[in-house]
Design a binder for these strands. Structure first.
Lengths: 138, 138
DNA sequence: GTAACTGCAAAATATTTGCATCCTT
DNA sequence: AAGGATGCAAATATTTTGCAGTTAC
């Protein structure tokens, strides 16, 4: 997938710029989710802080990445699965946050169990965040 | 439970002050979760913004309220169940966010289904956030 | 060449901290 | 009376917006 970066940008009708390439590459290479600060650190002073905000926002709008609900309410982003298209997300996978190393994993292969809602409630999306120790820290 | 406010504060070794009483009462009366801004609005100019921050923090530390992981990463708080004690939370219930009215419900009676984690991962807590339409908006 | 993207400056918002004063016990 | 809680001021952090200059196509 590392070489599909330009293709991903093109597919989403985004012009190919240094910052977009670099930031998308960070996500592809990252095993977990990234916060704005992570990107700022890993990209050095290469881009303006504002550019990172705008790039992340663009990626979210295009369905390339999505935000993750976290227990500590910090803002984190992760790559969407291919099924995600603009305005139509299929993020029904489990997120795992390690209490030790702080890394966030997208467990794409763990299916989200169905939740029995009270009468009258209609679900459109279900997010599951599991926290504990990851395979490296257990 | 409306009359147990002072008792709740005492039980947690907190001195009984106007702001704590008022803020705790807001939570007891609220059908859903509250954000810092909600509290600020509903309490008028009665308390300083900083007092609200500190009160919420104190309540979280004592296990009276807990933060809710939200899809939009806004910070929201809700009353803990009685089983929550200091440093030892049992928040394994489902949270529901209504896309229409924005209200957050704690579905205490909906049990969180077990999640099958990959080998090596150990779960200590599971949060489930369901979004969609609530019983009033469906 | 044109529309889109970036960087810089600055505004708006959110959160934290220090300290003097006031209130609860 | 003593310790903790509050209010105010200010420091910090976070996010958004406007605009002029630059770049991708």
């Amino acid at each position: 997938m590392l070489h599909g970066i330009n293709e991903t940008l093109k597919r989403n009708q985004l012009s190919i710029t240094d910052s977009r390439k670099k930031i998308l590459e960070l996500f592809v290479r990252a095993s977990g989710a990234l916060a704005h600060a992570d990107i700022e650190n890993q990209s050095g002073t290469e881009f303006d802080r504002v550019t990172i905000y705008r790039t992340l926002q663009t990626f979210v709008e295009k369905g390339i990445i999505h935000t993750i609900p976290t227990a500590d309410n910090s803002v984190r982003y992760a790559l969407c699965k291919d099924a995600c298209t603009e305005g139509h997300h299929h993020d029904d996978h489990v997120h795992f946050m390690c209490d030790d190393c702080g890394k966030t994993y997208c467990l794409d292969h763990v299916t989200v169990p169905a939740v029995a809602l009270p009468k009258g409630f209609q679900a459109t999306q279900t997010d599951v965040i599991v926290s504990g120790k990851c395979m490296n820290c257990a």
